[in-house]
Structures are given as C-alpha cells and as structure tokens.
Nucleic acid binder design. Structure first.
Lengths: 194, 194
DNA sequence: CGAGGCCTTGACCGCGGTCAATGCCCGTGG
DNA sequence: CCACGGGCATTGACCGCGGTCAAGGCCTCG
C-alpha cells in the first residue's frame, strides 16, 4: 500500500502544471497504484485496450509496436513522464502498442475510467489531464517535423542536444527505431561524428 | 454578421462529438466570426502567436512552414475540420507556421482566450474542445507512424485510401512535402502506379 | 568458458534527392 | 483571338544516404 507522502514528488510536478486543491489531491490519491516492474518486463501487452494512465515514478519505460516482425520504439518515458497510448485511450480501440520497462521501475497506474469519473466533480483535475495531453501532442508534433525533413544524422544530433538522457541510458537498438533508422545506420552515424 | 442558423452544420458536427445544451450553444455563437478568404490568401502569418481556433466552414486550407527556403505542408483541413497550431496555442510561443486558404473559403474564427474563458461556466464546451484536440493528436500519431517506417510509395498509397479528397483537390507540390518527399519523387511514384 | 545479445564494420544496392530540360495549362495583354 | 509568360507536372541523368546481408568483436550472464 501507499505510504503517506510517497507520491509527493509526482504531485509536486502536477501542481506546477495545474495547481490542485487539497481536496483534489486527496481524491486522486486513492486512484494511484504504485506498481513495480523489473527491467524488460511488460507493463501493458500489445492488443490490450488502453484503460490506464501511467506515470514513471522511478526508472524508465518505452512504448513500442511491431512492424514487419521487428520492434519500432515510439516513445521513451523517464521520471514523472506520462505514458498513454493515446490512439487507444481516446478511441477505445485495442492498441497495437506495448509498454515495457527499460529498467527496474516503479510506475504509478491510474484507472482512466475512475480518473475520468472525477472530472465533473473536480474541473481542475480535468484541466491537469488535458494540459498533460496537450504537452504530449506538442512533443509529437515536434517529432513529426523532425522525421519529415531532417536527415538521420540531423535527427540524431537533435536528440543528443534535446534529450541527452535518452542517449545515455537507452540501448542503441531502441534509439535507432525511435529515430526511424536501423541500428546499423545509427552506428555509422555515431562513428562519423568522432 | 451571422445569420440565424448559418452555423448549424458545424454545430451539428460538434453535437456528435460532445452533446451541447442550448445554453452552451447560445454562449458559443457570439464568439464565432465567419470570415471569407480568397484562394491562396493567408489566414494567419508566420510569426504570429496562435490565439484563434479555426474551423473550415467551406473550402480548404493548410498549415505550412518554411524549411531551408521552401514550404513544408503539415496539415490539410476541409469542411468542419479544426485548424490550430498546437505548438503555439498550448505554449504561448510564436508559431513558425502559417495558415493559408487553398480555395475560396469560409472560415469560422473563435478567439481562444474568449473560448477558454467560457470553460469554467460550461464544462461541456471544455470537453468538446479537448475531444477535438485528442482527435488531432491521434491523427498526428498516425502520421508519425507512417513517416517513421513506410516508404514514400507506401505513404502515398495510404493517403490515396485514407484521404482521397486530398489527392483529388490539392496540388501535388503541397502533397509531396506533406508526405515528406519532393514533387519530383511523387511524380515518379504516381507514374509507376500506372 | 561457452552462448547469446548488442554493437560495429564492410560490401553492395536501391530509393529518393538534386539539377536541368521539356511539356502543359491557364491567365493576361496586345 | 493568338502570343506570351509563369507556374505546375513530368522525365532524364546522376549521386549519396540509408537499407540489407553477413562477418567479427565485445560484454554479460549462466
């Protein structure tokens, strides 16, 4: 079970995005399940409909899907990052994507149904959720621009400056498909930069 | 000025996404400005901060930006489609993107500030807006997947089946950059399919 | 110490880019 | 009405980025 203030760091982040009253915070806490996953463990499987909103509490995770038999990584999440498979959560369709722990991780899991049920009572909670979604959307738009008109090398350099934590902590094979290239090409790009 | 029920078709679409009470509808109407743009006319210029939510009432429009001196099309909007430059509207930063009419078009323009001010009073209006944003987000995710791991030809074929209206109505030079390729390559792809 | 996963490197090739010439369509003015 | 000009699409020649296939080195872990 949750200890009294175990979730405080996460709630502090929420408050920076959308100030939450004491009441809202107390209503949200019981929905937060802290779950532990070992490195490489599956947090959600391909084919499940997304009915849970996750936050990385400690560790790291990724969203990936299968394309012609090999894995394509779509998103990396670190501490306090939101993880949703929007194309399933917002449509109700089963997701083709899986969520996997990349390190031993603690993850906060919130039932989306229970969360959404609180929205009428606590508009600020709805606002928080929507602001988080908006941030994800803006991030996705940036990635789209990069994929649309940068070379593989430019995309790698941009990742180096914008998200050095990814380069440091994540195996190259996952980074390659995230950048839209093969492991082999990424390896060549890296060696050409030295 | 707006005639009595001129906006009805658009509001009908809204109601399918999120049912709106008579009161909400009446509160929203005064915010809706119907504006006319000629083909090729600029609806919003590059550099402006996005403070307006647009809907295409009739006609067509696109969002584009400049990359190394030439235009990259990011989005096409047709009847009843939402147009926002999310990366500016949600961050408050000036947008590097422009909105342009592709045909003689009627566009519904809503001040985002005025709209957001109604949200506390009319939660259903906020829900409608957020559902529209969620749809845009899901669309963007799909485009990202396509760009990440389909060939140019596969992306073109997908556009043919998913959005034939784009192929029919939009000049190829705009479609090319939307697909992440050059006009020349698109031309070759098209000829190879016959 | 062996097995397997991850990264690197080499050889080769094809998709899509650039540059440039040509054709086509359409609006404008003589 | 035709002549001209400009924008859009097509086509050809050429090239380089990034893909595939395969071999080899290096860790980690059993």
């Amino acid at each position: 079970m949750l200890q009294a203030d175990q979730l405080k760091p996460l709630f502090d982040v929420f408050n920076l995005i959308q100030p939450l009253s004491f009441q809202v915070t107390e209503a949200l806490k019981p929905l937060c399940q802290l779950r532990y996953f070992k490195k490489h463990e599956e947090i959600q499987a391909i084919g499940a409909t997304c009915k849970t909103v996750y936050f990385v509490f400690s560790g790291a995770a990724r969203i990936f899907y299968l394309k012609d038999g090999h894995e394509v990584t779509e998103y990396f999440a670190f501490e306090n990052d939101l993880i949703i498979r929007a194309e399933s959560l917002f449509t109700g369709n089963p997701s083709k994507k899986a969520i996997q722990a990349l390190e031993n991780s603690n993850v906060v899991a919130i039932s989306s149904e229970a969360l959404f049920r609180l929205f009428d009572q606590y508009p600020d909670l709805e606002k928080l959720f929507n602001k988080l979604v908006q941030r994800s959307y803006v991030e996705t738009l940036k990635r789209l621009e990069n994929l649309q008109f940068l070379t593989a090398e430019e995309r790698y350099r941009k990742l180096l400056t914008d998200h050095p934590e990814i380069i440091q902590k994540i195996p190259l094979k996952y980074i390659a498909s995230y950048l839209g290239i093969t492991q082999v090409s990424l390896s060549r790009i890296r060696s050409s930069l030295r």
